[in-house]
């Protein structure tokens, strides 16, 4: 046949762009649920040092004695790490495809409908990735107490309070939260669309609103403790 290539019927659905998008959506939803829980935990800070440290310790003992010590936490870390790997892999693969789909650019191109959040999805994602690495180094892996006078040791509350008394750390954190807002606002909606739950105009609009509401809840929740610390409301 002169004008056609043979259709790729045998190709499995698994290797399609939409399958990659589904990977991003599912892993993204895992993250969204995680940050929601994480945010809730952070708010415990407001309940005081002992409440917060008890909560932190509880995270290590969930599921005992069925699970070993720190069993649940490790499991969660593994899941999150795998999700992160898959999310980043799919993102870069799709990014590469998109670049390959238009190798010659327009001389003039206007964005008509693109929202601010969707525009910064990819670079915002890269920024968040860097932030997460720093965030893990700071609070989980090395537990650097940048401004700390004393090594906080096994006192998470102290570590957090000490850290956010350093203004530039708080600024990094606040900027990251803004990035998180943008990423979540589009991401939650986008995941809903990718999973296919927005098959009519009303559901579509609902998903868009949900994205912003969820992003706002998470980010505001995340910002309360550090700002409270910075402004001396929590010591």
């Amino acid at each position: 046949m002169a004008t056609t290539t043979s259709p790729a019927r045998a190709t499995k659905a698994r290797s399609t762009t939409i399958a990659l998008k589904l990977v991003m959506a599912v892993t993204g939803i895992i993250f969204a649920l995680f940050v929601l829980a994480h945010m809730y935990g952070n708010l415990k800070l407001l309940a005081g040092e002992s409440a917060y440290n008890t909560y932190a310790e509880h995270l290590r003992t969930i599921g005992e004695p069925m699970l070993p010590h720190r069993g649940f936490l490790t499991l969660m870390e593994v899941v999150l790490l795998l999700a992160l790997g898959a999310h980043v892999y799919a993102a870069f693969t799709l990014w590469g495809r998109a670049r390959g789909a238009r190798t010659q650019r327009y001389a003039v191109k206007k964005a008509v409908a693109q929202s601010f959040s969707s525009k910064w999805m990819r670079w915002g994602g890269v920024f968040l990735l860097l932030f997460i690495i720093w965030h893990l180094i700071e609070f989980t892996i090395v537990k650097v107490n940048v401004g700390g006078q004393s090594v906080a040791g096994d006192n998470p509350y102290q570590l957090v309070v000490d850290s956010f008394q350093v203004w530039w750390l708080t600024i990094i954190y606040v900027v990251a939260m803004l990035a998180l807002y943008l990423h979540l606002a589009h991401g939650v909606f986008s995941a809903t669309q990718t999973v296919g739950w927005t098959g009519n105009a009303a559901a579509y609009r609902r998903a868009q609103v949900t994205g912003h509401v969820m992003a706002a809840v998470v980010v505001v929740g995340f910002l309360i403790p550090p700002l409270a610390i910075l402004f001396g409301l929590v010591k």
Binding site: T17, A98, A101, Q114, S118, K119, S190
Partner: peptide
């Protein structure tokens, strides 16, 4: 073709 990022353009 590229994948969709649900931007709406």
């Amino acid at each position: 073709f590229g994948g969709c990022t649900n931007i709406g353009e």
